[in-house]
Design a protein around this nucleic acid. Structure first.
Lengths: 248, 248
DNA sequence: CGCTATATTGACTTTGCTCAACCCAGGTGG
DNA sequence: CCACCTGGGTTGAGCAAAGTCAATATAGCG
């Protein structure tokens, strides 16, 4: 079932044919790798030769300045593709590292392109996915540039919750949440103590609870309001999170 | 000569065949539109149906929160493609607006796809361009999240100067620079008065001068140092800015 | 049980924001 | 031709959000 989450996500963009789903499943089962927490899948400067699909666990894309300041650029959850297409370039301009123990499938550009050629619906869904990934990247810039600390922490939590909901990894408003406060800080351009204070402030409103690696969203509507959350940037991913199937 | 800058930029990724250049030129000459300053080419919520190439002038991608806060997500200069591929999605999640009077070429997805199908080298270069566009987007997040005001203003100026250099729009360290301080502020998550103070501080070092819509870079190496500028994210665009031709 | 990670909290500092006044240049119309 | 208007840009005083530094607490984990 290693391709399960990717298949679910892609189905939210457009219905995949049975055969296409099977091909994804097959390609995600061939070379499965495991990595411990806090390891790089690929580092800045390396020559990318593969496409990676997250099967289990969380990872992130990040970049460090020479004096050690770190900016996390994206979080990856199961079903996410780390660097579709990047293999055209000679050298990575950022790194991808694990945040938890991770299982991921590694495929070659050729395998990947064959998948798209054989199944146009899969190709189209992969396209949509990469456009949504870019939209998420942009929305993070809006958060870091314009939202207050309170708003941007709420926004990040809201986004992650909805993305997990799309792939069926939430239950009764609960989901796994392995990020440390330092991870959140590095993603939002804040400091870890300030994330601590901000999270406390949000939790005191009763909207969410975070504890022991688990996030509980008690009141999604209020969380969205606090975050100034406009779901349009998630496109069909957002519909899927609410049980509306993607267009055929 | 409406496709000139796009052709120059794409050539920095890989050499284009003569015929490919002609096809780009042809497609960029068919439907040329003009727009005044501070107008939207396309607004958030609209259904994108075209691919736009900037011929002359500057534009930006931006997003506004409901209370009016604006984040500029990208600057477009001549030769830039506004929203390659986005036509797959139903609704824009951001707007594209002009910063100066603008001339741009509008092409249909079909024309665009035909171009790629007929000339693989063009397709490849377009791919590289969109990867670099994404890398620029990420680097902005690093700026806003981690760099100080001084560093990020310097970084933005450095990036724009190099991008203009790649397409041959600089001369003796000078280039056109039509951004207002408010534009810079909205791009970097700062306020306009603070941009004013920061620019003054940079100019006092003698590294650059900005005046009457013109930027002069007196000392590029020092500017890069001040900005903690690592050009790897521009990939071959950076080589081209230094007169090294792209790979064949 | 104790080690290491992570999180909390407090006192103090700093960066950059807010608000507001003022300046300046270019463009327009009387 | 010049007065005025408008859209930038500059500058200053005071303030607030978030950073820094450091001590302490807590929680998993071996």
């Amino acid at each position: 079932m290693s391709g399960k989450f990717l298949i679910r996500k892609l189905n939210s963009f457009n219905r995949l044919p049975q055969k296409g789903e099977e091909a994804i499943q097959e390609i995600c089962s061939r070379r499965i790798l495991s990595l411990a927490r806090r390891q790089d899948i690929i580092s800045e400067g390396e020559d990318p030769r593969t496409v990676n699909v997250i099967i289990d666990g969380w990872a992130c894309r990040y970049k460090t300045l020479e004096d050690g300041r770190r900016q996390i650029l994206a979080f990856f959850v199961p079903g996410d593709l780390a660097d579709l297409h990047v293999y055209i370039l000679d050298a990575m301009d950022h790194s991808i590292g694990t945040l938890t123990p991770l299982r991921y499938a590694r495929m070659s550009p050729a395998e990947f392109e064959a998948l798209g050629n054989d199944y146009p619906a899969v190709l189209r869904a992969l396209w949509c996915d990469s456009l949504v990934t870019a939209a998420i990247q942009r929305e993070w810039l809006v958060s870091v540039g314009q939202r207050t600390a309170l708003e941007s922490v709420a926004h990040l939590i809201c986004e992650l919750y909805l993305r997990l909901k799309t792939i069926g990894l939430t239950e009764d408003g609960k989901c796994s949440f392995p990020l440390t406060q330092s991870d959140i800080a590095d993603a939002l351009g804040m400091t870890q103590p300030h994330v601590s204070r901000t999270l406390k402030e949000i939790e005191q409103t009763g909207i969410i609870t975070i504890g022991r690696g688990t996030l509980t969203v008690h009141h999604l509507a209020k969380l969205k309001e606090l975050a100034i959350f406009n779901p349009n940037y998630l496109h069909h991913l957002y519909d899927a999170a609410h049980g509306r199937p993607g267009p055929s």
